[in-house]
Every structure is written in structure tokens, then in C-alpha cells.
Design a protein around this nucleic acid. Structure first.
Length: 565
DNA sequence: GACGGCTCCAAA
DNA sequence: AACTTTTGGAGCCGTC
């Protein structure tokens, strides 16, 4: 999949000039080039796009939002910054010149992006990039091509780079389109829980009433429950001995103050995380425009930034996400994605079989491995996260006996992490190495002056890193499945589009790890659902070929996001 | 007053 | 219900 013929490289040669250079299928410049002023760039891109090139650029988040703003869509790209991060770390390209080269500006991409001012003109380059930026881009692309060509499995890492780059396009397009958001309904939700919007600095009426009730029951007239230490002291005075103020700890206590305390925490959370201030800051003209950060998590999951908290959107306020008149949301999530990924990764036929009927956990019960669905669920979570204690830990032997290959895969990943080694996902994203402090404490634990405390601490840290690598292979491979799913879906939606612009036809508006939301005209939802399912099937084939593993989707067609699930 | 560490909670 | 993974963000609180 990578690279395809005719890449086109936009790069800046000054503050306002951009060079577009054409490449052959082999990645060589063929001499065709254009130099355009910044205002003409979008038109030039749009004209070239008719030849269906793959754009090769340093950073999708730098170029694409401004193209989208003037209604220019591109079909495909290579995001050199994201690709570099993968190739730098991947065990598949460990022998490449790229991996051996010293850290450079391509490694600092994420940091630079955060430091870049929010407002600047499209081609107003940083000084270091203004000079020779084109050569740098071309050299980096050549270096990446060489790394892929020399990889242990070029098709595998190539697919990952293509999916990662397609994800960057999706992220920019979703940020552009925005998630439909009804401020009035959000306000109604807030008013029903908190009361009317108060003057700045004031507590909403219902939150204040709850606080007064709490203070009364605790006989603490000036208590600020937002201060954990103050709250702990007040609870102790009331005879409630707890070591933390987490809600689930407090729920175990029996005291008249607990009910208002839990209520206060819930209301306070709603107000501070998704209250009126959030609405003011994040919703404009009926759309929430979260900024996604592809590759923002070490495992390859996306992160989000900018205060919206898009990937932690609480279920409580999803009712404010309402489709436009005459439109619907098609909400799809991949059921039990991570355990199914583990089954496919390990080729554990028993676990694949357990998932074939639709509910993996029910299938595990049916196989006789455990007795209840809850046990199956908690045991699987424990296997993927590395639980050692509690019910989950106790169930592990049963799970190991029933699904030896699946459990062996996560156990081996954990052991590798404990030894300080890297682990690698299905398509080739590798975990980082543990830091210097970790290595130091490991080696010190076996030194002459090491105490039992040192050794114990080192073992604890080793196990902690093992839990990380254990989870990395599953979470990271699941993220790859999701990237392929979205890339396929984006392509199919575009092929089926009848409108002239992204937002005139069914389009992606939200993504959350294993779930997508498509905003669609009501009369197109059946085709959209079919496209989502086709894209999911194809993602399974891309990652696991002819494996019998299935990744069923649950799809809901709704008017508001709160109705889904 | 800025900053970093800590606690808590939302999501997958 | 958590345990056990990855995150972002708000508020508190001690330090500079």
C-alpha cells in the first residue's frame, strides 16, 4: 500500500512560497514542479488532486485543516511525522538507518505542535524550516522508504503507516466537520441537575443546597469537600475511617452524610468537567470541534487535546449531541474488541470459537471455562491488564487452562517487559524502552549494597512495566484494527457520496477508540450501516488475513447520541 | 503568581 | 465494585 505512484511534496521555501514537487512511483522527483503563493495553494492542491496523488507532507495537522477550511479534500497522504515516530521505534525497522540516526526535528513533532501559536498563516514557517525544508522533507521520505523496504515485513509496517496517515486525514476532517451539539439541550441537562446558571464565581443553586446538606450532616459548617485532606479530616471526626475520598470507597460507608457527599461529587464533576464553561469554550455554531491527536498515546490510540475532553465525553451529556433536522446518527461500536483482538493475535482457536456466536463472554461460559458471564468478563480484563489479586486473579488459572495460546501471548508480553525488552503490535508498532530510572533500579537491585527493600521495589517496577507491555500488544493492535476500520469507512463513504462536499453527505463526526459516529441524511442510513460493516470486515482481513476471528459491530441509528447503548 | 505533583473522575 | 492498562482535565496545595 505504500508508497503509491505520484507523490506530491508541498514544502515551504520562504515565508509565503510553497513548492509542489511531483514524484514517480519509485519515489524519485520527475522534474515536474510548481511554486505557488500561499493564497493559491489550495487551488493548486485541488487541481492536482484530480490525478489522485498521494500527498507526502511533514504534518497533516499543519496543512490539512487550512485546505479543508476552503473546501479542499485530499484522498490520501503520507504523514512523515507520524510515520517517523513509528519507524523510529519499531522492532521491524530496528536495523534501518532511520532508527540508527540521532534524534532530530522529526522526533520532536508532537512537542513543536503544542508550542506552535494557535493562529498563524498557513505557510508562515518556523525559521529552521524556512531554509531547505523541501530537501529535508524529501530526504526524510527517502529515509522512510528505505526503512520500510528493508523491514522484516514491509507490507505489515507499510500498512501501519498508511493507516496511521489515513487516520490523520480522518482526524482533521472530523475536527473540521464537528459533532452536532445542541447548546439548549445541554443547558437543560445542566439546569435539571444543577439549577440555573449562576453568576460568575457563584455555586449553582442545587449544588449549593447539596453542599449545605452535607455540611449539616457532617457537622462541618465550613467544609470544602473539594479538598481531599479537609474532607478526610471531617470524615474522621464523624467516625468514618477511610484512607481516600474516592466515591467507590465512600459508598461502602453507612452515615447520613454519605448520600449528600456522593451527590455533591457527582454534581461538582458535571459542573467542572462539562458545565456552562465547557459549553462556552467548546461549542460554536452548534458544533463541538474536538482536536484529536492521532498517535497521541504510546499504544497508538488517539488522544485529544484543547480542553474538550472528547475521548472522555460522559454518557450523561450525550443527549445534547443531536443530529440535524432530516439527518441521523449511525453509531457503531466494535463489541468486546480487545479480547477478540487477543484471540486473533494468538490464534487461540478456542477463544476465537467462543466469540463466534456474538457474545464472547457468553461463549467463554458455554465452553465451561468459568461459571458466569461476569466472571468471564473480569477474568478477560485481568488477563489483558495483568491483574494478580481479587476475583480476577483467582480466575486466571481456569482461563489459562481453557485458552492456553491466548494467555501465553499476554504472559510472554509481560515477561518481555519485565526484562526491559520491547513488544510489538500486529502491524509493527513497538513499545518504548523503559526509562533510565527503571533500568537503574533494576541493576541496583542485584548490586552488593542492595537491600531487600531495593529488590522488592525493583520487582514491583518490573511487574509494573510488564503490565504495560502486556496491555500494549492488545490495546495497540486493537488501535490498528480501529484505524483500518476508519480508513476503510472514510474511503467507502467518499465513494458513495452524492454531495459535493464532505458535510453534504454521510461523514464521520466522532471516534472513541472502538466506536464511530457518522452523521447521515436519514434516507442514507442503511447504506451507511452497510459501509460501516463492510469496513469492519475489511479491517479484520487486513490485520488477520483469513483468520476465522470475527469482530462484530453493534450499530444503532438514532437522533441523539444519548440513545445509543 | 507560576508551576508541578497529587487526587479524583470521565472514557475506552 | 475493584483489582489491572492507556489517557485529559479540574481543583487543591506546597514550593519557588
Amino acid at each position: 500500500m505504500f508508497p503509491r505512484p505520484r507523490g506530491i511534496v508541498p514544502s515551504g521555501i520562504g515565508s509565503q512560497r510553497i513548492v509542489l514537487q511531483r514524484m514517480t512511483a519509485g519515489g524519485a522527483l520527475d522534474g515536474a514542479e510548481q511554486e505557488v503563493d500561499e493564497p493559491q495553494l489550495a487551488a493548486a492542491v485541488a487541481a492536482l488532486e484530480r490525478q489522485h496523488p498521494r500527498w507526502v507532507w511533514d504534518d497533516t495537522s499543519r496543512w490539512y485543516p487550512r485546505l479543508l477550511a476552503v473546501h479542499v479534500r485530499v484522498e490520501r497522504c503520507v504523514d512523515l511525522r507520524l510515520s517517523h515516530a513509528i519507524l523510529r521505534n519499531s522492532s521491524l525497522t530496528a536495523g534501518s538507518a532511520l532508527a540508527a540516526s540521532p534524534a532530530c526535528s522529526w522526533d520532536r513533532g508532537a512537542l513543536e505542535r503544542l508550542e506552535r501559536p494557535a493562529e498563524h498563516t498557513l505557510f508562515d514557517f518556523d525559521e529552521e524550516l524556512a531554509d531547505g525544508a523541501g530537501e529535508d522533507t524529501l530526504a526524510e521520505f527517502a529515509s522512510q522508504r528505505a526503512a520500510v523496504a528493508g523491514a522484516d515485513d514491509p507490507a505489515r509496517i507499510g500498512l501501519l503507516l498508511a493507516a496511521e496517515s489515513a487516520g490523520a486525514l480522518v482526524a482533521a476532517e472530523m475536527m473540521y466537520a464537528g459533532l452536532p451539539w445542541r447548546e439548549d439541550i445541554h443547558n437543560e441537562i445542566l439546569e435539571s441537575h444543577l439549577g440555573r446558571r449562576p453568576a460568575p464565581g457563584q455555586r449553582p443553586e442545587l449544588l449549593d443546597a447539596t453542599l449545605q446538606r452535607l455540611r449539616e450532616k457532617l457537622e462541618a459548617p465550613t467544609l470544602n469537600p473539594d479538598s481531599p485532606s479537609e474532607l478526610l479530616k471531617a470524615l474522621a471526626v464523624a467516625g468514618l475511617m477511610v484512607t481516600s475520598t474516592r466515591s467507590w470507597e465512600l459508598k461502602k460507608l453507612i452515615h447520613p452524610a454519605i448520600e449528600p457527599l456522593l451527590e455533591y461529587k457527582k454534581l461538582s464533576r458535571l459542573l467542572t468537567a462539562n458545565g456552562w464553561h465547557w459549553l462556552d469554550a467548546n461549542v460554536r455554531d452548534g458544533r463541538f470541534h474536538p482536536e484529536y491527536v492521532p498517535g497521541g498515546v504510546v499504544t497508538g490510540r488517539w488522544a485529544s487535546t484543547g480542553g474538550g475532553g472528547a475521548l472522555q465525553l460522559p454518557k450523561q451529556i450525550r443527549g445534547a449531541v443531536v443530529a440535524d433536522a432530516g439527518w441521523k446518527f449511525v453509531v457503531a461500536d466494535a463489541s468486546q474488541l480487545e479480547p477478540r483482538i487477543l484471540a486473533a493475535l494468538s490464534g487461540d482457536r478456542g477463544m476465537v470459537e467462543a466469540g463466534s456466536a456474538g457474545d464472547l463472554y457468553a461463549g467463554i461460559v458455554a465452553s465451561g471455562a468459568v461459571e458466569t458471564r461476569d466472571q468471564a468478563k473480569v477474568a478477560m480484563l485481568g488477563a489483558m491488564y495483568g491483574a494478580t489479586s481479587g476475583e480476577s486473579g483467582r480466575l486466571m488459572p481456569k482461563l489459562t487452562k481453557a485458552y492456553p495460546k491466548a494467555i501465553a501471548l499476554v504472559e510472554e508480553a509481560a515477561r518481555a517487559g519485565e526484562r526491559g525488552e520491547v513488544v510489538t503490535t500486529r502491524l509493527g508498532r513497538s513499545s518504548p524502552l523503559p526509562g533510565a530510572a527503571w533500568r537503574a533500579s533494576q541493576s541496583e537491585a542485584y548490586g552488593e549494597n542492595a537491600t531487600e527493600v531495593d529488590a522488592s521495589r525493583a520487582r514491583g517496577q518490573a511487574r509494573g512495566w510488564g503490565r504495560f507491555t502486556r496491555n500494549f500488544v492488545v490495546q495497540g493492535s486493537a488501535a490498528e484494527w480501529a484505524l483500518c476500520w476508519m480508513a476503510n469507512l472514510r474511503r467507502v463513504l467518499h465513494e458513495q457520496a452524492t454531495g459535493s462536499w464532505i458535510t453534504d453527505s454521510p461523514h464521520l463526526v466522532f471516534f472513541m477508540h472502538d466506536e464511530v459516529v457518522v452523521h447521515s441524511p436519514a434516507d442514507r442510513v442503511d447504506a451507511v450501516e452497510a459501509a460501516i460493516r463492510t469496513a469492519g470486515d475489511e479491517a479484520g482481513r487486513l490485520l488477520f488475513g483469513a483468520s476465522p476471528a470475527t469482530f462484530p459491530l453493534s450499530v444503532a441509528i438514532v437522533d441523539d447520541y444519548g440513545q445509543a447503548k
